[in-house]
Amino acid sequence: MKKHYFAAACWLALVPLTLLWDWAFAPLNTGKWLLLMKLIPLCLPIRGIVSGRIYTYQYCSMLILLPFTEGIMRLWDTSALSVGFAAAQVGLSVAFFVLCLAYLKQFKRPKNPV
């Protein structure tokens, strides 16, 4: 089994997590614009993530910092449900990052001795 399938599963799990968290269970009451601002960066690279494109994984390794940072900040929320969603988001973000690096490592070219 290819390594990118586990990373893709983590990325794809962030989409329903965000929908459930911010739309159904613990919304921030900022309207739908914040939900869209969070979902668009997650949905745009899905095709490249699923197909295992190297460039997509390279920029998504930096893009994953957005959900990670939000999850860290919302870990100190007052709602226990929101804290649970934040912990899940942080866990999925860290898992994606680690799996992404493991996937990209196989494409790294060895240095040529000069």
Rank of each mutant, 00 (worst) to 15 (best):
P27N: 03
Y5K: 13
G52T: 02
L39A: 08
A26G: 04
V83G: 09
L75K: 12
S51C: 13
T18Y: 03
V114R: 13
T56L: 03
L81R: 04
I64E: 03
I49P: 00
C100I: 06
Q106D: 08
M1P: 06
I40F: 04
G71L: 07
F25W: 14
W11N: 00
Y59T: 08
Y57K: 08
V90A: 00
A8N: 01
Y59L: 11
V98A: 09
W76C: 13
S61W: 06
L34H: 11
R47I: 12
L81G: 02
L42K: 01
P41T: 01
T69W: 12
A26W: 09
R53F: 05
V90S: 06
M62T: 08
N112W: 13
G52Q: 05
C43L: 15
S79M: 10
W11G: 02
C43Q: 05
K3R: 15
C43E: 08
S82Q: 07
W11V: 03
F6D: 05
Y55A: 14
T69M: 15
K108T: 10
W33Q: 13
L36C: 13
Y5Q: 11
L35Q: 00
H4D: 07
W23D: 11
K111V: 12
A24R: 15
L44M: 13
P113N: 10
P41M: 09
I46G: 07
L14H: 01
L35C: 01
F25P: 11
T56W: 03
Y55C: 09
N29W: 02
I64F: 02
F96M: 09
F97M: 12
L104S: 11
A102P: 07
N29D: 03
V98H: 01
L20E: 06
L44P: 11
W76R: 14
A88W: 07
S93K: 07
I72E: 01
G52V: 10
L34V: 15
F6N: 02
M62Y: 14
W76Y: 15
L44C: 05
L101P: 06
R74P: 00
A95G: 01
E70N: 15
A102E: 15
V50A: 14
G84Y: 02
A24V: 15
C100T: 04
I40A: 05
M37N: 12
T56Q: 02
K32I: 12
D77I: 04
A13Q: 00
S79H: 04
A102D: 15
W76M: 15
K3G: 07
S79I: 03
T69E: 08
P67A: 00
L104F: 07
T18P: 09
F6S: 04
M1K: 05
E70S: 11
P110N: 13
M37D: 09
Y57E: 08
A80Y: 04
A24N: 12
T56D: 02
I46L: 12
G48L: 06
S51L: 15
L20H: 04
L99F: 11
L104D: 11
A24D: 08
N29C: 03
I49Q: 05
C43D: 08
N29V: 00
G91A: 06
Y57A: 04
L28M: 10
Y103W: 09
Y103S: 10
F68P: 05
S51M: 14
S93H: 06
L19W: 02
V90C: 06
V83D: 07
I64V: 06
L12R: 04
K111G: 11
E70T: 06
P67N: 00
C43R: 10
K38N: 03
P16F: 08
W21R: 09
D22S: 14
L65G: 15
S82N: 10
L75S: 10
L92P: 05
